[in-house]
Amino acid sequence: MTQTIIRPLRSSDRPAWETLWTGYLTFYKTSLPSNIYDTTFARLIGEDSQDYSCLLAVQDDQPVGLAHYLFHRHCWRVENVCYLQDLFAAPHVRGTGVGRQLIEAVYAAADAAGAPNVYWMTQQDNHTGRQLYDRVGSLTDFIKYQRPT
């Protein structure tokens, strides 16, 4: 079995990160202009990367998955909370534990930052992802609303 290493994003990872993030966006049937890619990558490796971060799952020196997460204040807690914004595993590694390892690495980063709560959202029909999420998280009763565009 191939070993998976979870590590922080590096500036030299831009091409692989872009491929993975494009795969994530495609999964959710969306696309973004290049300036969003540039801004997001700069944030992930920039000075504010302690609050907005990316972990990569790497096998045989090739990134095969990513997790974007950020910390923010919360009115119901003294501690910050952690939002796991994006999680993606390349199709050829799905079902091998990469997603679980990325989530557990985000849990560890949240613990290290003193943020005991980690949360994320997914689409209701993401059945494959939800099988994992049901094992590593607790489904809440909240429904998401947003401002119309």
Rank of each mutant, 00 (worst) to 15 (best):
S138Y: 10
Q3P: 08
Y37C: 05
R43I: 01
L102P: 04
H68D: 07
E18D: 15
E79A: 15
T122H: 03
M121K: 09
R94V: 06
Q3M: 14
I103R: 01
D13E: 09
T30N: 11
P116C: 09
Q85A: 15
N80F: 15
Y83A: 08
T22C: 06
Y119W: 12
R94Y: 06
Y52N: 14
V81W: 05
Y119Q: 10
S34A: 12
A112S: 13
L25P: 00
L56F: 04
A89E: 04
S49M: 07
K144H: 07
G46H: 04
Q3W: 10
I103Y: 00
A109V: 00
W120I: 12
L55F: 14
T26S: 12
L66N: 00
T2W: 08
D125P: 01
A113S: 15
Y145G: 12
L132V: 09
A16L: 09
A57E: 08
R130S: 02
N35A: 15
D61H: 15
R10N: 12
R7H: 01
T149P: 10
L55K: 06
S31C: 09
T30V: 04
L55P: 11
Y37P: 02
T140W: 12
G137F: 01
P91I: 04
S34Y: 03
S12L: 03
T4A: 08
A16I: 07
D125A: 13
P33C: 07
V58K: 05
D13C: 11
D141N: 10
D134C: 02
Q101R: 14
S49E: 03
L56Y: 05
V64S: 01
V78C: 12
S138C: 14
K144A: 10
K144F: 03
D61S: 15
F71A: 07
K144N: 08
D134L: 11
L32E: 05
F71I: 04
W21H: 04
Y37R: 08
E79M: 05
L84M: 14
L70S: 06
L55V: 06
E79S: 14
S138D: 04
K144P: 03
Y145M: 09
A57V: 07
I45W: 00
A115G: 04
E79Q: 13
N80T: 15
T96W: 03
P148Q: 08
L32S: 10
Q124K: 09
P8H: 12
A16V: 10
H74Q: 11
L56T: 00
V58H: 11
F27V: 08
V64A: 06
A115W: 00
Q59P: 09
R100K: 13
R135Y: 00
S53P: 01
D48P: 11
L25H: 15
A112C: 13
L102F: 07
C54I: 11
R94C: 13
G95N: 06
Q123D: 09
